[in-house]
Amino acid sequence: MNSLWLVIVKRLGLGIVTLIAVSIIIFVAIEMLPGDIAQIILGQSATPETVAVFRQELGLDRPALTRYLDWAGGMLRGDFGTALASKRDVSELIQSRIFNTLFLAAYAALISIPLAISLGLLAALYRGSVLDRAVNIISLSSVSMPEFLLAYILVFLLAQTGFFPTMSDLTPTMSFQEKLYVTFLPALTLTLVITAHMMRMTRAAIVNLLASAYIEMAELKGLSRTRIILMHAFPNALAPIINVVAINLAYLITGVVVVEVVFVYPGLGQLLVDSVSKRDVVVVQVASLIFAVAYILFNLLADIFSTLSNPRLRHPK
């Protein structure tokens, strides 16, 4: 088991290094925004004195390195700072947003991952058949359409007709079923966006393996096609499938801004957009960092699970 743990520990270490690098990039990128933040927030009419006072209040007069270490340290302690625009605690501001984003992501993931993998397996099993082509065409057209268009088509078809609400405004008092109902349209939009990618990767990974000697051996043992695909090809195709699932899970958390805006869903993406327009750099920094963490975490998990899917590493000599 030694080599396996070594691989995992190495990946973890690399993940931490990446996270530190990303936090530096986010910090520096915001530093490099043109103009003085205090000036921008207070507007053109502010007197130099008020700007100076405000700068001191924000701590902008201190050197960049100190401010970075302060900020990064705060992040580690869970102290995300105070929002510039609303003067509210950022952690408080972000908490419900994170929950909402995760809720929607989990909802879409629970529909799309089983769907994509089953469709991919079916398409591989009935390669070249009508089913294969139909699945391909439908999923490709849905992935080729811009998300907002897809969202509006769904609104037109399913909300205008009165089946589902156009706006997915969550309130804390809602029951779980109500939440599922209200967020069905954004979840469906996201499902349509990510299913194609995962489904095609599953199909390709399986089809790739069909030429290998052990698949021929399975056929020559007289096994059924279903058994060959599920029992002989699928376990060996896990690594690429896990990777594509991870990329799409990360996308569900970080890439849903447009869908959140269309359905007025109170998620992290919307908060980010709002904060950018309000020039609230504190919130923008935190939101960006959370997105980065999500990306790194999912890729890390993908690496670990695809390593675990390799029998040579799981069962060393």
Partner: peptide, 10 residues
């Protein structure tokens, strides 16, 4: 010919 390739590694 190649048992190594014809056994499923899983």
């Amino acid at each position: 010919q190649s048992a190594a390739a014809s056994f499923n590694p899983t």
